[in-house]
Design a protein around this nucleic acid. Structure first.
Lengths: 199, 199
DNA sequence: AGAATAGAGAACAAAGGGAGAACAAATCAA
DNA sequence: TTGATTTGTTCTCCCTTTGTTCTCTATTCT
């Protein structure tokens, strides 16, 4: 859907000043600041923006326009931080967004982590690679997952779930598989894609 | 369809200044900047350009001329085909386009190839991976390049250029480096990025 | 001369953008 | 709770901008 000039203006204002409002702005407030004197006119534009999918209404509520997913839609999926085997995920203070080829993505929410370490080097996952993770709390056997161990350490490993135990397999001859009780391991997501930059 | 002088002029203006407009320009704006004083005259030219297929209308909308060929610009960079060590690049009948994260790209034109074979497996480049190649005809030593050998075979290897000879190093213990005369090897591009899908 | 190209200008329909009144649902004040 | 107020919605009416279609004229090329 294509926006007209005014619609674009209004959308940009909404986007750029989203933080300036303590609460979602009312139509009257928006009218004042946009130089309109009729709520009716504004309403037409907002409806067009909703139609275009760049803004979403908060049903049946006053003061309810909200930006539609400014991140996922235009900026890509969130890049959350670094994962290094045996340590907590080192989160960025505020997530950046990364444009990932849609071929790598499915329907579920996904995010990107940077890999630190060589524990999966024999699977072609190198130090510094970016991995695309699909958010899930369960996985099929032998998928590569982001697993949280004991609510502390996070790690990227191939998972093997057996009755009564969970084995996490590194892909590095210098390291050994680790065995845990099912309750100790929480699956955070499944590896669906990989990006590497040689620059 | 062949363009007349003026049509060519107008098309070139549209093409070269596409970014200068925050939104598609109106006929009046174009008239002013092209030195016309009649929208009717412009309209004739635009119609001719649409007929010629170099520009496309945005139906039923005001402010609606848009440059044609949304392919390369919006859809990403071309995915040309498959590269398998020791064979010519297997080109697609018509290139598809792939959206690649801008982080992986530089300023030069680039393209995507799919890797077939395990010759670079120890560098973390697996069978089925997509590699992003920056078009160049020379490379720094020890970069990974797409090289054309004797105008026939194409291959993805780490390059070592010495006085009087060129060595292409696979990253697979089962394979040996190949030595060529400098004239035999043509560099087609340099590896700058990698994409992998686990689906 | 005739055809193709280029432009001017008038007239027009549709889209864009806005004003304001009237209404109903949500919210707030007492 | 009740009434007043705010807020989102719907509607009708208006003007401007914009693309389109004409007709008419001037220039260039064969």
């Amino acid at each position: 859907m294509k926006l007209t000039r005014r619609q674009q203006e209004i959308y940009e204002y909404l986007r750029d000043n989203a933080d300036a409002f303590d609460h979602p702005p009312s139509y009257d407030e928006l009218c004042r600041v946009l130089g309109l004197s009729s709520r009716g006119s504004l309403h037409k534009h907002i409806q067009a923006l909703i139609q275009a999918g760049v803004v979403e209404p908060m049903d049946g509520m006053h003061r309810g326009i909200r930006l539609a997913e400014p991140g996922p839609a235009e900026e890509g999926i969130p890049f959350l931080g670094t994962i290094a085997a045996g340590r907590p995920i080192e989160a960025l203070p505020q997530p950046e967004y990364m444009q990932v080829p849609p071929e790598l993505l499915g329907n579920r929410p996904s995010y990107v982590l940077r890999v630190r370490g060589d524990s999966m080097i024999e699977e072609g996952i190198l130090d510094g690679d970016y991995v695309v993770i699909e958010q899930r709390d369960s996985a099929a056997n032998h998928e590569i997952v982001v697993a949280l161990i004991g609510n502390e350490e996070a790690t990227l490993k191939r998972i093997e779930q057996q009755p009564g135990k969970v084995i996490l397999h590194p892909a590095n001859a210098a390291m050994s598989p680790m065995v845990y009780a099912p309750g100790e391991v929480k699956i955070q997501g499944v590896l669906v894609g990989l990006l590497r930059s040689y620059r």
